[in-house]
Structures are given as C-alpha cells and as structure tokens.
C-alpha cells in the first residue's frame, strides 16, 4: 500500500483501555476526495478510531498518517484540527451559552492565536461566510439565540455547520442523523454528498437507509478491526457481518 495519494492511512493500529482492546490491529486507507461510510455494532470502536485520528487518544501501536506524510500520533488535538481535520461528535457538542452565530464565528477557518482573537473585527467576508452557512444549515432565523435552546436535530445541524465553517480537508462525522426525521436525514445525505465533492469524508452511521443514500464504499468494523469492506450490498451480504449484527 502506498501512502501518497491517501488522505488518511491507518496501519496496524491498536489501543487498549485497562487491558480491553477497543481497537485491534486496525488498518484503513482513505483516498483523497473519497467519502467512506463506516458501520459496525455498538462498541465496535468507530468513535475510538476517530479519537485516534483527532489526537484525543494515543494508539498503543501502529501508524496513523494524514495527507500522505504527516504522522498524527505526534500531534495534539489543536494541531491536528489546524492541519485540516474536522470532527462532528456522536453526542452533539456545541457551545450552549453562545448564540448560533457565535458558534460559527469561533469555528471559522483562520488564525487561531490569542491576540488576533482579542483584536478581531468582523470582516465582510467572514459575515458573508457565516450567512452562507446559516442558509445551508437552515438556522438563519435563530442566529442570535443561544444554542442551548436548539432541538437535538438542530444541534446536529449546527455542528455540521461548524464543520463547514472550519473548512477542513478531512471530515469525520459521527452519527450525523441520529434523532433526525426521514426528511432531515435525506437532506443531510444530500448535504454530505455536496461536501464530498470537494472534501474527504468519513461518516459513521447506524442508519442503513442513510448509508444507502450516500452510495459510497462501506467499511464494517467489529471488535476493533475491519470485518468487511466494499459496496453496501457486498458488505450486507457478507455472512460474518450478518452474524455480527444478528448475534450468534
């Protein structure tokens, strides 16, 4: 396997918590511009994989490379985010006391040091960008309300909006449609496909309709390693996958 041309390259990654192997010799490669859906039963290690990529958890062994040559295990969360990896959490995490607009403002791509933030004056370009995103995530009417007042689904949207504002090279999206109606799910799929035109994306989701809607290559994780990989039809007809999902 060659690393160049890949946006994300995991090889032989393992991590254990107090002896429990959450990720076990996991290898996964994502090409530039690719969108990948990851499925797997609860506790398969999907979120933990994202923790490893974003620097929250250090792997015990294995290689994690971003953009062909950057060793992610040597960097912390903030550095990794600055390199261009954005993340949406499984449990929507937004700044509840801030308005919707301020949530986006803090996510907006750009300088991340203290003094520029202290003397920041909003520019026309920034305002336009925020307006655009508010339009996309359909929260324009609530821009000045605290995020705490949003519904679960709206928070999901807001978090996706924050991802857009960050404009990363690689997006890690953990269960984006949990708690959404069918119509919203469909909208989200459309939005993600739009994003995937210009970005690399990994989506974790349990909702198979949504995964089918995305229509991309699927990886099924189980007990911390790849169980099966291919089109959704291929994966879902794989006996081992069926066994894992239905229980033995």
């Amino acid at each position: 396997m060659s690393m160049s041309g890949t946006i994300l390259y995991l090889d032989g990654v393992s991590v254990a918590f107090d002896g429990f192997r959450a990720i076990n010799d996991l290898s996964l490669v994502l090409d530039r511009g690719e969108m990948r859906a990851i499925i797997g039963p609860n506790g398969a290690g999907k979120t933990t994989m994202m923790d490893i990529v974003t620097g929250k958890t250090r792997p015990d062994s294995g290689e994690v490379f971003f953009d062909g040559q950057i060793d992610l295990t040597r960097h912390d969360e903030a550095e990794i985010a600055m390199m261009g990896i954005g993340r949406k959490f499984q449990k929507p995490t937004v700044f509840e006391n801030h308005t919707v607009e301020d949530n986006l403002l803090l996510s907006l791509k750009g300088q991340r040091s203290i003094f520029p933030a202290l003397f920041y004056r909003s520019s026309a370009a920034d305002r336009r960008r925020i307006d655009d995103i508010l339009g996309v995530i359909r929260l324009g009417a609530r821009r000045n309300e605290p995020a705490a007042g949003l519904s679960h689904g709206q928070k999901q949207w807001l978090e996706i909006g924050m991802l857009l504002a960050q404009d990363p090279k690689l997006l890690l999206v953990d269960e984006p449609v949990a708690g959404m109606t069918d119509a919203e799910t469909f909208e989200t799929a459309r939005l993600l496909k739009d994003i995937a035109e210009t970005h690399s994306v990994i989506v974790v989701e349990h909702d198979m309709h949504f995964v089918r809607e995305l229509g991309v290559k699927v990886t099924c994780l189980h007990e911390g390693s790849v169980l099966s990989e291919g089109t959704l039809d291929f994966v879902s007809s794989d006996e081992r996958v069926v066994e894992v999902y239905l229980g033995r």
Binding site: A78, M82, V94, F95, E96, N97, H98, L106, A117
Partner: peptide, 20 residues
C-alpha cells in the same frame, strides 16, 4: 472574540481544541 472563546473553553474545553 477572545472573550467568546474564553466562555467556550469554560463550557466545552475539549470542543475548542477540536476546532484548533
């Protein structure tokens, strides 16, 4: 903007890290 960031750190420190 720094002040907003300060409060963001207060409410969800690790989230701010993932924003860079």
């Amino acid at each position: 903007k720094y002040g907003k960031l300060l409060m963001a750190v207060r409410d969800a420190e690790s989230r701010t890290r993932f924003l860079g």
